[in-house]
Amino acid sequence: MKSTFLTFAALALFLASCGTQKSAPVAATEPAVPPTETAKGVTLTPELAEGQNLYSNNCAKCHKLYEPKKFTQEEWTPILVRMGKKAHLDGTQMASITNYINSQL
């Protein structure tokens, strides 16, 4: 009888520990995002900040991030097209990243 009780207690503890995964609360509405500043003091609109976020999070997965001023706008265009395909980014995401890069040139 004790072994049956201990088996059920262990099983209940195991199931309880597996089912209590914590998750971050999800906001019902997106809060207003104030403009942010880059390291060089350039104020970013929420749209440009989203492009910066996409650039930082998607591009840094595979390689180091380059400063936008390292290349000209003409040099960035084929780089962004090629890397956007590799990262499986949609048109909206690519436009956001492109706008961010161009705003920093």
Rank of each mutant, 00 (worst) to 15 (best):
P35G: 04
S23T: 07
E37V: 13
G51H: 07
L48C: 09
V42L: 01
K85G: 04
P31T: 02
T4V: 14
L48D: 05
F14H: 01
E47H: 11
E50Q: 15
Y66S: 15
Q21E: 13
K70G: 05
N58E: 06
E50W: 08
N57L: 12
E75C: 09
K85F: 08
T38F: 00
T77D: 13
C59K: 08
E50A: 12
H63I: 01
T4S: 05
I79H: 13
A9H: 04
L80T: 05
T43A: 15
K64Q: 10
P78E: 09
S23D: 11
E75T: 10
T77A: 10
K86N: 11
F5V: 09
Y55L: 06
K69Y: 09
T7L: 14
K86Y: 07
S23V: 13
E67F: 12
S56P: 07
F14S: 00
P31N: 01
T72D: 04
W76M: 14
K85Y: 03
A39L: 06
F5A: 02
T20V: 15
H88V: 06
A28N: 13
L65V: 07
P31I: 00
Y55T: 02
K70A: 03
A16W: 10
Q73K: 13
T72Q: 08
T38Q: 03
L15T: 08
P68H: 12
L6W: 04
A27W: 08
F5N: 05
H63L: 04
P34S: 06
A32H: 12
G19Q: 02
P68F: 00
A27E: 11
N53T: 09
N58D: 04
A10Y: 04
A39P: 07
P34G: 01
G19T: 00
S23Q: 12
E30L: 11
E47A: 08
E75Y: 08
E50R: 14
